[in-house]
Amino acid sequence: MIVAERKPMDEIVAMLAPHRKVLVLGCGGCVTVCLTGGEKQAELLAGQLRLAARQAGRTLEAAFDCITRQCEREFFDNLTEDPRTYDAVLSIACGAGVQYMSELYPEVPILPGMNTTFLASNVAGGVWEEYCRGCGDCVLAWTGGICPITQCSKSLINGTCGGTNNGKCEVNPEMECGWLRIYERLKALGQLDNYRTLRAARDHRKDRGGGVRRLVLKDMAESQESGNE
């Protein structure tokens, strides 16, 4: 799932400064699951913004709403509030939702309430950790199921660097050395040859190097033109 964290309040307040009537829009997808951008958070943020405005001696009308996912057109039909009747929408979806909504409502400023951070798994109640970087070229088959792109702070592909210190990464003494974990796991699996094999430099076109990435499923894809109707 995608993890996003609410932006610092000062940044949000500054963003909303020119507006008098704002809709805080939650998303029922990933950000609800990571407890940062669902309906409850939208409700709380709207209240907090109204109070903040009052503190600053100005009035702000802030309502909240939430839809199932802000990254699908159809769910916007379920909005209770009409974004066009607001000066701006503060979306607390991930960056995908904010941009997607901006395309759907070109006449309304859609502002990001969140910083979208990483692809996570839940490691404990209320704790999420990055598990995938969406590199487009998964190597987990030969790394014992542990991602070196994510779990190694340098995203190395040929093994541990000299920065491993008592099993921890030089970047953060709280963080385990990803490659040491890979080594231990491969050893346990009897697959150390996977470690020994030289890995060629990665093709970053599959990652951020190739512009906007798309998934087009031939058997399902609608033509873009009709899809926009």
Partner: peptide, 12 residues
């Protein structure tokens, strides 16, 4: 502390 992965990396 764990030298084996260092040695493998050196081999590579």
């Amino acid at each position: 502390e764990v030298v084996d992965p260092q040695i493998i990396k050196l081999e590579k």
